[in-house]
Computed example of a mutant assay.
Amino acid sequence: MKLESQVVPQQIHDPYLYTEKKVQVCLEKYLEEDYYFSHEILYFNGGEGEGSPWSNRENAVKDVMEYWEMEKEKITELHKSRNKHVHMYVKRGLCLFYMLLFWSNSAPVVLSDWQHNIATLSLKPINAEERLSFIRQNSKLYHSFVQLRELFQEQHKQFSKHLAISKLKKDKK
């Protein structure tokens, strides 16, 4: 496992998610909380994009959805017990959703000016920008978790539909 310290590039900088200027990156653990966006950080700092999750989106989407299922269970339990730290887990879920959203569109995650960047994506849930804004502003509310859960479902459906149509078109050729 290779850990290295990297400057958070401008494309990934989001004060809601990052307070540090430097973070540890680890490509082997890119879906774990301390290493979110490792591929993007290396890529935007001049590293290679080869082998990145957005270039192998089928596997990346599958992996993100598996991690989300674990996070979703944790958030459900935290809401049931009225845990005051639930917002931290919702933030983790948001990070996973950003990965799902951008990677399923074959793009690296770009968090700076995220609303504009999401607006340019072709595969996305309806009103994604507004719904994500609501979640970011109200991460302690149960309804924010419900919205996040629905966003994951909708994006996964959009991606699956897109893959199925692409494969049908390919088979017809």
Rank of each mutant, 00 (worst) to 15 (best):
F37G: 14
K91W: 10
I75W: 02
D63I: 00
M65C: 09
K167E: 14
E129G: 07
E4M: 08
F159L: 11
L163R: 13
L132D: 08
F152G: 05
S166F: 06
P108C: 13
V7G: 02
A164Y: 10
L3I: 06
Y98P: 01
P125Y: 04
Q137M: 09
F152Y: 05
M99I: 08
S144H: 08
N127H: 06
G47N: 13
S133Q: 15
L168G: 06
S112K: 12
D34L: 10
K124R: 10
L94F: 12
N105E: 10
S144Y: 02
V25C: 07
N117I: 04
I12C: 05
N138R: 09
V90P: 00
H143T: 13
Y36G: 11
Y67M: 10
S55L: 14
N83F: 03
H156Y: 10
K2A: 09
L78I: 00
N56R: 15
K91Q: 15
C26G: 13
E28N: 11
Y36C: 11
H87G: 07
L94A: 13
E77T: 03
E66T: 11
S38H: 14
P9C: 06
W54T: 02
R149A: 04
L168P: 01
Q24T: 04
R136K: 03
Y98W: 14
K22M: 12
L132T: 08
K80T: 03
F152M: 09
V146T: 00
Q6I: 05
D14M: 06
K80N: 10
Q155A: 00
F102P: 00
Q10M: 01
E71Y: 06
Y43D: 11
S144W: 04
K62D: 14
T120H: 01
D113L: 07
K169W: 02
E48S: 15
E71K: 07
N138D: 02
N56F: 13
F44Q: 14
H156C: 04
V61A: 12
R149F: 01
S104Y: 04
K169A: 14
F97S: 08
